[in-house]
Amino acid sequence: MDPFVVLVLCLSCLLLLSIWRQSSGRGKLPPGPTPLPVIGNILQIDIKDVSKSLTNLSKIYGPVFTLYFGLERMVVLHGYEVVKEALIDLGEEFSGRGHFPLAERANRGFGIVFSNGKRWKEIRRFSLMTLRNFGMGKRSIEDRVQEEARCLVEELRKTKASPCDPTFILGCAPCNVICSIIFQKRFDYKDQQFLNLMEKLNENIRIVSTPWIQICNNFPTIIDYFPGTHNKLLKNLAFMESDILEKVKEHQESMDINNPRDFIDCFLIKMEKEKQNQQSEFTIENLVITAADLLGAGTETTSTTLRYALLLLLKHPEVTAKVQEEIERVIGRNRSPCMQDRGHMPYTDAVVHEVQRYIDLIPTSLPHAVTCDVKFRNYLIPKGTTILTSLTSVLHDNKEFPNPEMFDPRHFLDEGGNFKKSNYFMPFSAGKRICVGEGLARMELFLFLTFILQNFNLKSLIDPKDLDTTPVVNGFASVPPFYQLCFIPV
Score class of each variant (00 low, 15 high):
289 I>S: 10
320 T>V: 11
215 I>C: 09
309 A>T: 10
30 P>G: 00
445 L>W: 00
87 L>F: 07
127 S>I: 14
352 V>I: 15
398 N>W: 10
108 R>M: 04
140 S>N: 12
258 N>A: 11
188 D>E: 13
80 Y>L: 04
225 Y>M: 10
335 R>L: 00
406 M>F: 11
297 A>V: 07
302 T>M: 15
461 L>C: 14
200 K>G: 07
58 S>T: 08
183 F>K: 03
66 T>P: 02
440 L>E: 03
317 P>L: 03
478 S>G: 10
323 V>G: 01
179 C>M: 12
441 A>H: 02
341 D>M: 07
222 I>L: 15
152 L>G: 01
84 K>N: 10
386 T>R: 13
300 E>S: 13
226 F>V: 13
431 G>M: 02
377 R>H: 13
261 R>K: 09
194 F>T: 05
246 E>N: 15
126 F>E: 04
37 P>T: 02
349 D>R: 09
292 A>H: 15
280 S>E: 07
173 A>Q: 00
27 G>R: 10
108 R>E: 06
420 K>V: 15
317 P>D: 08
129 M>H: 14
176 N>I: 01
426 M>P: 03
304 T>P: 05
295 L>K: 01
275 K>T: 09
157 R>W: 10
187 F>T: 05
76 V>H: 01
96 G>C: 07
12 S>F: 14
303 S>R: 09
409 P>L: 03
407 F>D: 00
398 N>H: 15
207 I>Y: 02
374 V>P: 00
413 L>F: 07
158 K>R: 13
311 L>Y: 05
442 R>A: 15
272 E>T: 12
432 K>F: 09
474 N>P: 08
200 K>L: 15
374 V>Q: 05
136 M>V: 13
203 E>V: 07
178 I>Y: 03
35 P>D: 03
89 D>A: 06
431 G>A: 02
437 G>F: 04
399 K>L: 11
306 L>Q: 02
226 F>T: 08
101 P>H: 11
371 T>I: 08
254 S>K: 10
115 S>W: 02
223 I>M: 13
157 R>A: 11
273 K>H: 11
84 K>F: 06
45 I>F: 15
242 S>V: 08
468 D>G: 11
354 E>L: 02
305 T>S: 11
57 L>P: 01
330 V>Q: 10
412 F>I: 00
451 F>Q: 10
290 T>M: 06
95 S>M: 08
219 F>S: 05
347 Y>P: 00
43 L>T: 10
202 N>Y: 10
295 L>M: 11
18 S>V: 11
483 Y>H: 06
442 R>D: 09
375 K>E: 08
341 D>A: 05
78 H>R: 04
296 G>P: 02
178 I>G: 04
85 E>D: 09
29 L>C: 08
189 Y>S: 06
172 C>S: 15
86 A>S: 07
206 R>F: 06
316 H>I: 03
137 G>Q: 15
321 A>V: 13
304 T>W: 08
119 R>Q: 09
103 A>N: 09
420 K>G: 03
357 R>Q: 01
254 S>L: 07
125 R>N: 13
443 M>I: 15
119 R>F: 04
124 R>C: 01
103 A>K: 10
297 A>N: 14
408 D>F: 04
69 F>P: 05
2 D>L: 13
7 L>P: 06
9 L>H: 01
382 P>D: 02
209 S>R: 12
481 P>I: 08
360 D>A: 13
458 L>N: 02
7 L>A: 12
454 Q>L: 00
114 F>K: 04
476 F>Q: 07
324 Q>G: 08
246 E>G: 10
392 T>G: 07
365 S>P: 08
56 N>C: 13
60 I>A: 11
45 I>G: 03
311 L>C: 07
11 L>Y: 07
21 R>E: 07
94 F>R: 01
28 K>P: 09
115 S>F: 02
29 L>Y: 12
406 M>T: 15
373 D>W: 01
316 H>A: 07
290 T>A: 12
267 F>P: 01
94 F>Q: 02
418 N>D: 11
188 D>Y: 07
461 L>P: 13
382 P>E: 05
365 S>Y: 05
390 S>P: 06
198 M>D: 02
58 S>V: 05
413 L>C: 04
435 C>N: 01
128 L>F: 12
184 Q>Y: 13
7 L>Q: 04
213 I>V: 14
34 T>I: 13
458 L>A: 01
181 I>T: 06
354 E>R: 01
353 H>C: 09
37 P>K: 02
207 I>N: 05
301 T>C: 06
397 D>N: 07
134 F>K: 14
488 I>F: 10
79 G>L: 00
320 T>A: 11
269 I>V: 09
425 F>N: 05
337 P>I: 07
283 T>I: 07
285 E>H: 12
189 Y>G: 04
45 I>K: 03
115 S>C: 06
24 S>Q: 15
365 S>E: 01
488 I>T: 15
47 I>C: 13
68 Y>V: 08
450 T>I: 07
387 I>K: 00
285 E>C: 06
18 S>T: 14
149 A>N: 01
461 L>K: 12
142 E>L: 06
25 G>M: 12
368 H>R: 12
372 C>L: 06
165 D>Q: 04
374 V>Y: 02
157 R>S: 11
214 Q>K: 15
215 I>G: 05
323 V>A: 08
395 L>E: 03
452 I>R: 03
299 T>V: 12
82 V>S: 08
180 S>N: 13
170 L>V: 10
2 D>W: 15
306 L>S: 02
100 F>D: 08
407 F>L: 03
202 N>I: 07
130 T>K: 14
184 Q>F: 11
393 S>E: 01
201 L>V: 11
53 S>P: 03
312 L>Y: 04
217 N>G: 14
111 G>V: 02
191 D>M: 03
486 C>D: 04
425 F>E: 02
339 M>G: 11
326 E>P: 00
267 F>W: 15
311 L>H: 04
485 L>R: 02
136 M>F: 14
193 Q>G: 13
117 G>A: 08
88 I>G: 06
19 I>L: 12
183 F>R: 03
423 N>M: 13
438 E>P: 03
135 G>Q: 15
90 L>C: 14
434 I>L: 13
421 K>L: 12
152 L>A: 03
294 L>C: 05
356 Q>Y: 09
133 N>S: 15
229 T>S: 15
179 C>V: 09
9 L>Q: 00
441 A>S: 06
218 N>A: 15
230 H>T: 06
426 M>F: 09
281 E>G: 11
345 M>T: 04
392 T>V: 03
440 L>M: 10
119 R>M: 08
342 R>M: 12
10 C>F: 13
94 F>P: 02
259 N>I: 06
98 G>H: 07
350 A>K: 01
396 H>Q: 07
134 F>E: 14
253 E>G: 10
16 L>T: 03
36 L>Q: 06
155 E>W: 13
427 P>T: 05
298 G>S: 08
